[in-house]
């Protein structure tokens, strides 16, 4: 159907009549060039339609819908009819101790993840990389990647079955005559618990990128320093670590940009068991104020605040990584 439009042909369809009745040389005017491109590309543009509709409505529509953070939003009146109140929602937000509490919880969990979860995939990747037995290595990889594909609902169910009040751990402790421990439903244990779940679910998956980086380290470097008498530790410090540093920096930047997101689904599933004191994070704060109480403008303000901070953090982290001579996420 859409053959590439040729400049001038005998076919009347291709030689599109203009007002003057003379087919112009297509490159002659900007308009002509535009026509030519349109005729060549209209089918590609048609291909884009479903995807672009999705982006227009559900991404950009929602993005512009964030403007309701500046409105005294009344669902009945809609975005156009609700009153513009400027930064009042934000003012209220910054005066709300509950919000700061949620922000603090979020940061605490993020920090715990950074310290305990972030290095875990690197450690496991080092272990896997050191295995010389190929089939064993493949087998372990298959096993440790699996939890990544399991939904949070199931992960939480598994943890309940293992660590809950009537779970395996407490069953074994009781059988051996030891004290049982309350892990789930205990506000003090909530944050470490959340991090443990993330470690269980995503450590294996996280090894993939490190394994790819480790595989690309130049063997000759190892050989050279080994001849110079470097032991395993020094080889790691002087060869492995510098070689995989860009990957580590990249992942750190991504993590920093996401520092205010700490597993919304995961925490929403378990928030009610320990209460908002320990488990309210910014995302659940948004959810419960917006969807729960119908305070849409206020909740959207909290969500927008989080999004803007995220963009700023990515920008800064990227700048810093350029200063340090790394390539970062983007240029």
């Amino acid at each position: 159907m859409s053959l590439r439009a040729r400049p001038v042909t005998a076919q009347p369809r291709a030689a599109r009549p203009t007002r003057a009745g003379v087919p112009p040389a297509p490159e002659a005017t900007p308009r002509g060039r535009w026509h030519r491109r349109w005729r060549r590309d209209w089918i590609l543009l048609a291909f884009m339609v479903p995807g672009l509709l999705y982006y227009a409505i559900f991404q950009y529509g929602a993005l512009f819908g964030s403007s309701l953070a500046f409105l005294d939003y009344v669902p009945f009146l809609g975005l156009g009819g609700s009153r513009w109140i400027g930064l009042q929602n934000f003012q209220r937000l910054f005066d709300d101790p509950d919000f700061w509490h949620a922000a603090l919880n979020t940061l605490e969990i993020s920090l715990l993840q950074l310290v305990f979860f972030f290095p875990a995939p690197l450690a496991l990747a080092m272990l896997l990389h050191s295995l010389t037995h190929t089939r064993l290595k493949r087998f372990v990889q298959s096993v440790v990647y699996l939890p990544h594909f399991i939904s949070w609902v199931i992960v939480v169910a598994l943890f309940q079955q293992m660590l809950g009040a009537t779970g395996v751990l407490n069953g074994v402790l009781a059988d051996t005559g030891l004290h049982t421990v309350q892990i789930l439903g205990n506000p003090d244990a909530f944050k470490p618990m959340v991090v443990a779940q993330v470690i269980w679910k995503d450590t294996g998956w996280g090894t993939i990128i490190f394994l790819a980086a480790l595989a690309q380290v130049d063997e000759q470097l190892y050989e050279a320093v080994a001849i110079d008498g470097a032991g395993a530790l020094r080889r790691f410090w002087h060869v492995t670590l510098p070689a995989i540093r860009p990957v580590i920096v990249l992942l750190l930047i991504l993590r920093l940009g996401d520092i205010l997101s700490v597993g919304f689904e995961q925490i929403l599933l378990q928030r009610d068991a320990v209460g908002p004191g320990a488990a309210e994070i910014i995302d659940t704060f948004v959810y419960f104020h917006g969807i729960g109480s119908g305070d849409f403008g206020y909740a959207a303000a909290a969500g927008l605040f989080k999004g803007v901070i995220g963009v700023i953090l990515v920008y800064c982290a990227n700048k810093v990584s350029h200063r340090l001579g790394e390539s970062g996420v983007y240029r």
């Binding site: 884009m48 672009l52 982006y55 409505i57 559900f58 991404q59 950009y60 529509g61 929602a62 993005l63 512009f64 819908g65 964030s66 309701l68 975005l79 940009g257 995302d283 948004v286 959810y287 917006g290 969807i291 849409f296 909740a299 959207a300 969500g303 927008l304 989080k306 999004g307 995220g310 963009v311 990515v314």
Partner: peptide, 22 residues
């Protein structure tokens, strides 16, 4: 421009509330 617009959504995903209202 379309590619850039698509990639931008990576950086700034819309929040729960606007998504719900859409």
């Amino acid at each position: 421009p379309i590619t850039l617009l698509v990639l931008f959504t990576f950086l700034f995903p819309p929040g729960i509330i606007p998504a719900y209202l859409v």
